[in-house]
């Protein structure tokens, strides 16, 4: 990274921080601005996406995990069964988020098939996740800008990961939208499976069972590939009954 950009130390850290903040704040807020200025009727869809992450994770799953974390048996489970623990976390994230997506997209059944709906919804959903990630780091960076220099290129990797994550959320939303509009439960199942796989990878990377750099690379490739495949798949079937 340092070699590629010809930057080092504080300069690299500053560029990384700017990139990270641009992704976390710029992409979701930019999408919202686009909706407000160009496609006002999609603004509601954007906020539905925000709501799906807010309700499924912030209001339901994370408090549940916090409550479980305050029990001794869960601490022992996470320490003695790390793989099952990672799988349980991944499966629960997939279940909560995809179910929220399904329930909030279901009313779209009465409307015409519109590929912009899952795109905007997905950016809203992934955008809130990115916003909250950025909001957790931004105060530290602004309070102590020299911290960016110490982090080297780590924030660039984090920003890159947020982009990949948002692409994944858009892809999952396309699948759930297709499942809702064409009554194809298999597509919903596929969204659950793919989401679970991505989160298992993230869990393995967080415990250093797979190198972080490898995970980020695989995630980026996977995100682009599935987004392209899913978009092609769904767009070919938008007129089918």
């Amino acid at each position: 990274m340092r070699f590629a950009l010809g930057l080092k130390g504080e300069a690299l850290g500053f560029v990384s921080a700017v990139f990270f903040l641009a992704v976390c704040f710029g992409v979701p807020l930019g999408a919202l601005a686009w909706c407000l200025l160009r496609e006002r009727k999609l603004t509601g869809v954007f906020f539905l996406g925000v709501a799906s992450f807010l309700v499924s994770q912030v209001l339901l799953r994370l408090p549940l995990l916090e409550a479980l974390g305050n029990t001794a048996w869960f601490a022992v489970f996470s320490a003695t069964q790390p793989m099952l623990y990672i799988l349980a976390l991944a499966a629960s994230a997939a279940l909560f988020e995809e179910t929220a997506r399904f329930l909030l997209l279901r009313p779209q059944r009465t409307r015409a098939f519109d590929l912009r709906v899952p795109l905007v919804f997905g950016i809203g959903h992934g955008g809130l996740e990115a916003l909250l990630t950025g909001a957790g780091v931004a105060p530290l960076l602004f309070a102590s800008p020299e911290q960016a220099g110490l982090l080297d290129g780590a924030l660039f990797v984090s920003g890159f990961e947020r982009l990949s994550a948002m692409a994944c959320h858009v892809a999952f939303t396309f699948l759930v939208y297709y499942a809702v509009m064409r009554r194809k439960p298999a597509a919903f199942g596929l969204a659950l499976l793919l989401h679970c796989l991505v989160d298992v990878g993230a869990g393995l990377a967080s415990t250093a069972l797979i190198p972080l750099f490898l995970f980020e690379l695989l995630l980026a490739v996977f995100a682009v590939a599935q987004l392209w495949l899913v978009f092609k798949f769904v767009s070919k079937r938008k007129d089918s009954i």
Binding site: A79, T80, Q81, P82, M83, I86, L87, V200, G201, L204, L209, I210
Partner: peptide, 11 residues
């Protein structure tokens, strides 16, 4: 594969 590899090693 990653899951099984992890299980076989364990914590």
């Amino acid at each position: 594969c990653a899951f099984l590899a992890g299980c076989s090693g364990g914590s």
